[in-house]
Design a binder for these strands. Structure first.
Lengths: 198, 198
DNA sequence: CGCGGGTTTGATGATGCTCAAGCCCGGTGG
DNA sequence: CCACCGGGCTTGAGCATCATCAAACCCGCG
């Protein structure tokens, strides 16, 4: 567990909550590093998710698979983000999601049970996760709103505005899935945008 | 502020956090009741949202309005739910949402600033809202997943499964909007379902 | 009554999907 | 070094879903 990975965790926590150095030490020791090779899974459909994972390097996606095998990217996570199936963690039921490394990825993992204990030992940690959940929730609401109200081309333009890095790191098929369309459709949207001078 | 309204608030908080009676007294006094007549707004597009509202009786919806006047129901809230534009509260920017009473509605309102102070006075309250955000977030992710992966008819069937009461309380046009389709489409879906013996 | 909002129905068209073929390019083995 | 393979991306044709516009209908309420 190298120093700058821990520093990214510390820095990320401090952005949303004032955590004392002593408390951070308690937190730090609850995490263990794990490396996931590109295209390997951190969680598979049907497993019960018992961890939160903090991405220190790399890029992951979580996706569902519908009744006829098509996958749908629900979330993406790169450096400084969290992954895990909150539904499964919270209910204890098997996950409907698969969490997969898009690139070679290093995460710091904590047992969800251990995190619950940490809330008692370090109450301010609850503030960090409340705020983190808040922004994740707000982002998802906006994405939902966008999906309900705008055609795919507008959503694509918004995405390259908000997440320019994504285009370089994720293949077209993942981006299409994230937008809720097929790779073919996204390819045509790109073609159409190029035709109009970009 | 009548007794059973306060009791609903107490009961709701206790479902997710062990709040002492004394602490609940502090919390209680931070809320003010407000009545919103059917079709009247609690928040309008362009205003900065500075409150959280707890619905004790009635039914509200929050919706966005797209560039050509169509509205899109983002959230619904009835007894025991919260409403407010978290994006606006958190960023201090004007809201893109309108929050409107679908029925005559009574809410208990708290200033978002006052709530931040309460977190310091009653730390366990942070747990309640962390958990509440968690379920709201998980629900929204599932709704997003459903929107991305299923056709409107399947989403409608899932909705009447999950929220049977909604059909009795909300007009068809709101339900259509919540599902991300037009009232005409939902009407046709219903017709089609009736034809197939339901 | 008759007005008016909400819902239904119909005809037409846009958006995005499916299936299928071809293309591009990077990696591998001869 | 090149020839081949394979995955990802593009392109095309036809189709399904859902939107749009417009008209008729239903029903509660003044």
């Amino acid at each position: 567990m190298e120093k700058h990975h821990i520093e990214l965790l510390r820095k990320t926590l401090l952005e949303k909550a004032d955590i004392l150095d002593g408390d951070f030490e308690k937190i730090r020791t609850a995490f263990r590093p794990r490396f996931i090779k590109k295209k390997k899974d951190l969680l598979r459909v049907g497993e019960v998710c018992k961890f939160h994972a903090f991405v220190v390097k790399g890029f992951m996606r979580s996706f569902s698979v519908d009744h006829k095998g098509a996958d749908h990217v629900i979330q993406i996570a790169y450096e400084g983000h969290w992954v895990g199936d909150l539904y499964s963690i919270f209910t204890g039921k098997p996950s409907n999601l698969c969490i997969e490394a898009v690139e070679d990825t290093l995460v710091l993992m904590i047992e969800s049970k251990r995190l619950e204990e940490l809330y008692l030992e370090v109450p301010i940690l609850e503030r960090y996760f409340r705020k983190t959940l808040l922004s994740a929730y707000v982002n998802t609401l906006q994405r939902l709103n966008s999906t309900l109200s705008e055609p795919a081309e507008a959503r694509y333009l918004k995405l390259i505005e908000d997440q320019p890095g994504l285009l370089r790191r994720a293949p077209l098929s993942h981006i299409a899935s994230y937008l809720g369309i097929t790779p073919e459709s996204l390819s045509r949207i790109r073609k159409h945008l190029h035709a109009n001078k970009l």
